[in-house]
Nucleic acid binder design. Structure first.
Length: 412
RNA sequence: CGGGGCGUGGCGCAGCGGUAGCGCGCACGGUUCGGGACCGUGAGGCCGCAGGUUCAAAUCCUGUCGCCCCGACCA
């Protein structure tokens, strides 16, 4: 999948939300290599056992793996900096492309062989310390998903090959999901069907209410890795009492590119996407209804206005003035500038030779949260048309108040 | 790897023995101009590839390559 201009803006916003919440957790960002030496993976036995690992050979015959996950890399890195209990805990995260040789990629961004992931690794003095950290991560994750406009449930799931405990998955329920989640209709109990001890139609152990099943997309997870990796890489520290102990490790994944796909699955209607304000590629979709044959003369090549800079503002605008058409364009131009100065990201659809209906349909499809229209009509009323993507009706907002109104909308 | 399906203009498809067509898109001219307008003209295809059958193959047969869906596996 190639990330095109609009989608990339969404991905970057999602990544920044994730980044902020990781920093709030006390974690620091790093960037680890994506190309791993075979030796690290042989040491943990996963060179052979990790079936989705991409293995490759250099010209000289040296073997490498493409990073599918980073325990093999982060553990030796942290070992180099930890000697004393005073050096712990350590919490490091990165946002990086992961490679996994999936047997069958599907559903676009929801499962690919190459995908973006935030992975957080924490190293603690004791198991209790890690246990105390888990709810903090859970809180941060739920905050991330909420800020991204999706609501996730925490489901218990299998711990995987390297953990005795169950892991926790953050599941967004949608028909597009591939996991089957058994959940309680009244409390927040949820289990992945792969390990479920409850039965569909049965009673929830917590509150006695009915259990139902839904499809879910796993957007994040938490694993208690114990000392599995710190044993292998000999990540020891000296305790206050002078004993040598292995650090206890946690691993927390969150699929950034998958989250973008999930946001769409959770926010669309028959007309297109409805981006939550927090991750929308733009804040405002400005539509200038300049009738055809408008400004720069016929046949002037005009790429679709998808950048932050309107094409027509780059030189030719206004050279062949056409009365009212010119006025509309100039008014939109002025509004564009004011919105930008107010801090709004504006997508200005200043295409000519495109009908109003088509522009509106495109605006709905792209799903920017707020659509503002400038036209002859709105000029006469000395106002701007205001329509939110999620609502059916449009209203007029006076020209004097529009900037304040937009600022208020973006803050809300 | 097992099961199913599909490869025909840029995209989506029809055609399934007689030499290729529709919708959208694109180009040009004109009309229209706030919810995906209309009329006219036009450009664009070795029908995935290779063999074979036939007077004749997009169409039938064989092989091959690619893609999609379901399953095992998985953030």
């Amino acid at each position: 999948f190639a990330w095109l201009p609009l989608g990339l803006r969404v991905l970057r916003k999602v990544e920044n939300i994730v980044r902020e919440e990781m920093v709030n957790l006390g974690a620091q960002e790093v960037l680890l290599p994506a190309l791993h030496p075979k030796e690290a993976w042989e040491k943990t036995g996963r060179w052979k056992s990790f079936d989705v690992l991409y293995r490759l050979k250099s010209q000289s015959g040296k073997e490498f793996a493409l990073g599918a996950t980073h325990e093999e890399v982060i553990t030796p890195v942290v070992k180099a900096f930890v000697q004393s209990y005073r050096d712990l805990p350590v919490k490091l995260f990165q946002i990086q492309t992961k490679f996994r040789d999936e047997l069958r990629p599907k559903s676009g961004l929801l499962r690919g062989r190459e995908f973006g992931m935030k992975d957080l690794y924490s190293f603690h003095r004791t198991s209790d310390e890690l246990q105390a950290f888990l709810p903090e991560v859970t809180r941060a994750y739920l905050e991330i998903f909420e800020r991204c406009g999706v609501s996730a449930r925490v489901a218990t799931a299998s711990g995987g090959a390297f953990s005795k405990d169950h892991s926790f998955e953050f599941q967004v329920t949608t028909p597009a999901g591939e996991d089957r989640i058994l959940l309680c209709s009244s409390c927040d109990f949820a289990e992945n069907a792969e390990i479920a001890v409850v039965k569909l139609g049965g009673k929830c152990p917590r509150c006695g209410k009915k259990i139902r099943e839904e499809k879910g997309i796993e957007v994040g997870n938490t694993f208690n890795l114990g000392t599995t990796f710190t044993d292998i890489f000999d990540l020891e520290y000296e305790t206050e009492e002078g004993r040598r102990e292995k650090a206890v490790m946690g691993c927390f994944g969150l699929g950034t590119t998958r989250l973008v796909g999930t946001i769409v699955e959770a926010n669309y209607d028959e007309r297109g996407i409805m981006w939550p304000k927090t991750v929308a590629p733009f804040d405002v979709h400005l539509v200038a209804l300049v009738p055809r044959g408008g400004l720069a003369g016929k046949g002037a090549p005009r790429p679709a206005a998808q950048g932050t800079r309107p094409v027509s503002a780059q030189g030719t605008a206004g050279t062949t003035g056409r009365g009212r058409h010119e006025e509309v364009h100039a008014a939109a131009d002025a509004l564009y500038g004011e919105l930008r100065r107010a801090g709004a990201d504006v997508l200005w659809d200043d295409r000519e030779s495109v009908s109003a209906g088509e522009k509106f349909a495109d605006a709905d499809l792209l799903g920017v949260p707020l659509r503002l229209v400038v036209s002859e009509k709105t000029l006469k009323a000395d106002s701007i048309e205001w329509k939110e993507r999620g609502s059916a009706e449009a209203k007029l907002v006076s020209r004097d108040e529009i900037i304040k109104a937009v600022e208020g909308f973006l803050r809300a």
